[in-house]
């Protein structure tokens, strides 16, 4: 088990190093400001972090990600669970869901800004709305798969509402909640950047837009790298351990 994990870690490091080497080699061959190498990007990153507003932008964007993530998960789960359990509600809203899944993110963003104004609420609602249908679809499947036999056990044992929820019902939805969270996080941070580019004057997305106008590819890559690093850290230090904990009962 331990040796397996070690070799797994080795493989991951090897893959990361290979990527960096290939990138450096390509940059060296191109020798152009259009493709800065990893060393140049790392230097720019350090400089932007110390002198520039990278950390502020990063913080603001992360706050937006967190807010829209929480909103989308709460609303999407509630809608999905309701649809999974009630055929009438499902019939009523299924078309809406398909519609929601297929409206382009950019359209939702424009409409939110036009209807709600160019403000923070509109930004967060726009991002959340893009994720809600996806969460709802996943949780609907989860609710449909809930094992009624186990709920009967809860009935026989006369469990309180909260124990029934915590010990019998929700554990059945955890795999679906995890799937929705992980796919949601990556979707949301991509959309947050678009929302910032279109209608905010701070955050990673806005700043990327500025660097785009200046052809500053090094800074674009530096901002991207910093954000990807944060998302990888969340995945590795929060999502994966959580998933392991929630599914440790599986053989």
């Amino acid at each position: 088990m331990v040796s397996l994990r070690l070799s797994d870690a080795w493989l991951r490091s090897l893959s990361a190093v290979t990527l960096l080497v290939l990138w450096q080699a390509a940059a060296g061959a191109a020798a152009s400001p259009l493709l800065p190498g990893p060393a140049a990007v790392a230097t720019a990153l350090a400089k932007l972090a110390v002198d520039g507003r990278l950390l502020t932008d990063l913080g603001i964007t992360l706050l937006r990600v967190a807010a829209s993530f929480a909103l989308a998960m709460a609303a999407g789960s509630a809608i999905g669970i309701l649809m999974g359990h009630n055929r009438r509600v499902d019939g009523l809203f299924d078309l809406w869901l398909v519609l929601g899944l297929n409206i382009p993110a950019l359209v939702i963003i424009f409409l939110c800004y036009l209807w709600l104004g160019l403000n923070e609420v509109a930004a967060i609602v726009a991002v959340a709305l893009n994720k809600v249908p996806n969460t709802a679809v996943i949780l609907r499947e989860g609710a449909r798969a809930v094992d009624r036999d186990l709920l009967q056990v809860a009935d026989v044992l006369k469990l309180s509402r909260s124990r029934r929820l915590r010990e019998v019902y929700l554990p059945q939805l955890y795999p679906y909640l995890m799937a929705a969270s992980r796919s949601g996080l990556s979707l949301i941070w991509k959309i947050v950047l678009v929302v910032e580019l279109v209608g905010r004057s701070n955050g990673v997305g806005f700043q990327l837009g500025v660097y785009f106008q200046f052809f500053d590819i090094t800074s674009i890559l530096a901002y991207t790298a910093s954000f990807v690093a944060v998302m990888l850290a969340i995945e590795g230090w929060a999502m994966r351990p959580l998933q392991r904990r929630l599914t440790r009962w599986r053989a």
Partner: peptide, 27 residues
Amino acid sequence: RLGMVFQTPRLMPWLTARDNVCLALDP
């Protein structure tokens, strides 16, 4: 008080043996 054993064990897969039994008891 009612106890019931079903045709299949119907244990909660995510609870240990101890916690499965505790389910029948008030905390």
